Amino acid sequence: MDHDDLPTLELAFPGPERDRGVAAIRSGEKTALTGLLEIYQHAGEALPQPGQRFSVLDSDGRPAVTIEVTEVRVVPMAEVDDEFARAEGRGYADAAQWRAAHEAFFRSEGVVEFLGRPPAIDGRTLVVAERFRKVESG
Score class of each variant (00 low, 15 high):
residue 27 S to N: 07
residue 16 P to W: 02
residue 43 A to S: 07
residue 27 S to I: 06
residue 42 H to T: 08
residue 71 E to Y: 00
residue 79 E to V: 11
residue 96 A to S: 14
residue 130 E to Q: 15
residue 124 R to S: 15
residue 43 A to C: 07
residue 71 E to C: 09
residue 85 A to D: 05
residue 124 R to Q: 14
residue 12 A to P: 00
residue 128 V to Q: 02
residue 83 E to I: 11
residue 3 H to W: 08
residue 95 A to M: 10
residue 30 K to H: 04
residue 115 L to N: 05
residue 137 S to G: 12
residue 96 A to Q: 14
residue 100 A to I: 10
residue 35 G to S: 15
residue 122 D to V: 12
residue 5 D to I: 13
residue 130 E to L: 15
residue 105 F to Q: 06
residue 112 V to P: 07
residue 26 R to G: 01
residue 95 A to L: 11
residue 88 E to W: 02
residue 87 A to S: 14
residue 131 R to D: 09
residue 97 Q to N: 01
residue 84 F to Q: 01
residue 18 R to A: 13
residue 21 G to L: 06
residue 46 A to N: 10
residue 53 R to G: 04
residue 44 G to R: 03
residue 90 R to P: 00
residue 91 G to A: 11
residue 138 G to L: 12
residue 24 A to Q: 03
residue 51 G to T: 05
residue 69 V to F: 05
residue 38 E to R: 09
residue 94 D to M: 11
residue 58 D to M: 10
residue 18 R to I: 11
residue 70 T to G: 09
residue 41 Q to S: 11
residue 84 F to E: 03
residue 126 L to A: 14
residue 97 Q to P: 03
residue 65 V to N: 01
residue 27 S to E: 15
residue 121 I to S: 07
residue 55 S to D: 09
residue 18 R to V: 12
residue 65 V to Y: 00
residue 36 L to N: 06
residue 53 R to D: 06
residue 133 R to K: 12
residue 28 G to L: 09
residue 25 I to Q: 00
residue 81 D to T: 06
residue 46 A to P: 01
residue 86 R to H: 04
residue 87 A to C: 10
residue 49 Q to K: 13
residue 87 A to Y: 04
residue 18 R to P: 04
residue 37 L to T: 11
residue 8 T to Q: 09
residue 74 V to Y: 04
residue 107 R to K: 13
residue 126 L to E: 15
residue 22 V to I: 14
residue 115 L to A: 13
residue 85 A to P: 02
residue 89 G to W: 05
residue 52 Q to D: 05
residue 68 E to G: 08
residue 111 V to T: 09
residue 38 E to F: 03
residue 86 R to V: 14
residue 81 D to Q: 05
residue 99 R to P: 02
residue 106 F to K: 02
residue 62 R to D: 10
residue 98 W to M: 09
residue 15 G to Q: 03
residue 5 D to E: 14
residue 93 A to H: 09
residue 75 V to E: 13
residue 14 P to N: 05
residue 54 F to R: 00
residue 32 A to F: 02
residue 90 R to Q: 15
residue 68 E to C: 11
residue 63 P to G: 13
residue 57 L to K: 03
residue 53 R to H: 06
residue 20 R to V: 13
residue 96 A to R: 09
residue 108 S to M: 03
